[in-house]
């Protein structure tokens, strides 16, 4: 008999019966713990009104404030992952994938679409970190390639919002080759003189940093985002020392010359639009239908 027996009726819900917390009314900042209403938080573009912490949000949220009136046409919405390697670790990849689709309501870790940004036609791709860590497999690579094809065809600027842990292990070398695929597409975009804006958000690491995220005509970061090639844990293990404060943040990358500037979410659209106005000849854009 254990010492601690629950005599009074307390919490009796079994762990497996617990439900995911439903959409609440309050948001508690992960950094400063200050509470605000979910409504206010969304109005503030999911940035803490107290400390300015930029919460991780998905493509849906980015599209809502980057496209004019949040209106856009999605590209390749239905594309989903195959399992070419029949990959299995502790779990089958197909099972993991299906469970994630069900949980997130998304089809993979990137959403792509076209619409207007301050009246200018643009193509935007944004990543969904809650989909297997925003990892890049065949679908992410292919959807980005197709989005760039659209940008090429209609001479529209391309904006990529990265948020990813890197390549998706469960598609192994197929994932690796997406680095080459997306970079080759960007090379074509570059040769066509079409602007490419890379937005790096928290976190952007691994194969995504080693390909499209670092290849923008301008690379811009959200404040405080973790950006790097190797993850902090791996580096710590390699050098056997604690990492300096602020290592691999946007501010660190700006200081070392890998970002053009850091932009708060509320200013992101205006800044990108201002840049595009100066470099992109709108008359070259063709209407897409």
């Amino acid at each position: 008999m254990g010492w601690f027996v629950r005599n009074k009726e307390g919490i009796t819900t079994k762990t497996e019966d617990k439900k995911e917390t439903p959409e609440g009314l309050w948001y508690k900042c992960k950094k400063c713990k200050v509470i605000s209403s979910v409504e206010d938080h969304a109005e503030n573009l999911w940035v803490c009104h107290n400390c300015g912490f930029h919460e991780r949000v998905n493509a849906k949220e980015y599209f809502s404030f980057l496209f004019d009136e949040g209106k856009f046409t999605e590209l390749n919405a239905k594309m989903t992952s195959a399992d070419p390697l029949k990959f299995e670790d502790k779990k089958k990849y197909t099972e993991r994938y299906q469970a994630t689709v069900k949980k997130t309501g998304l089809n993979d870790a990137v959403t792509t679409g076209y619409g207007k940004m301050e009246g200018r036609d643009v193509v935007i791709a944004a990543m969904n970190f809650n989909f297997i860590g925003g990892s890049m497999g065949s679908v992410v690579g292919e959807k980005i390639a197709k989005a760039i094809d659209h940008a090429l065809k209609y001479h529209k600027p391309f904006i990529m919002v990265s948020k990813s842990g890197g390549a998706r292990m469960m598609e192994a070398a197929f994932s690796l080759m997406q680095l080459a695929k997306t970079s080759a597409k960007l090379a074509q975009l570059g040769d066509a003189g079409i602007p490419y804006v890379s937005v790096l958000t928290d976190p952007t690491t691994g194969g995504v940093t080693a390909s499209y995220a670092m290849l923008g005509d301008i690379n811009i970061g959200e404040p405080g985002a973790l950006i790097g090639f190797a993850g902090p844990r791996v580096i710590k293990e390699t050098i056997g020392k604690d990492l300096p404060e602020g290592f691999q943040t946007s501010e660190f990358l700006l200081e070392h010359g890998f970002l053009d500037f850091i932009v708060e979410r509320k200013d992101m659209k205006a800044k990108i639009a201002a840049f595009l106005k100066m470099v992109h000849n709108e008359d070259k854009s063709k209407a897409s239908k």
Partner: peptide
Amino acid sequence: AFPGLEAEERGQGEAIARNIYE
């Protein structure tokens, strides 16, 4: 690629990305 502190400071990700692109 070397996962070190200085490698990150000097842009390991950018260097690899640039090579793939070029």
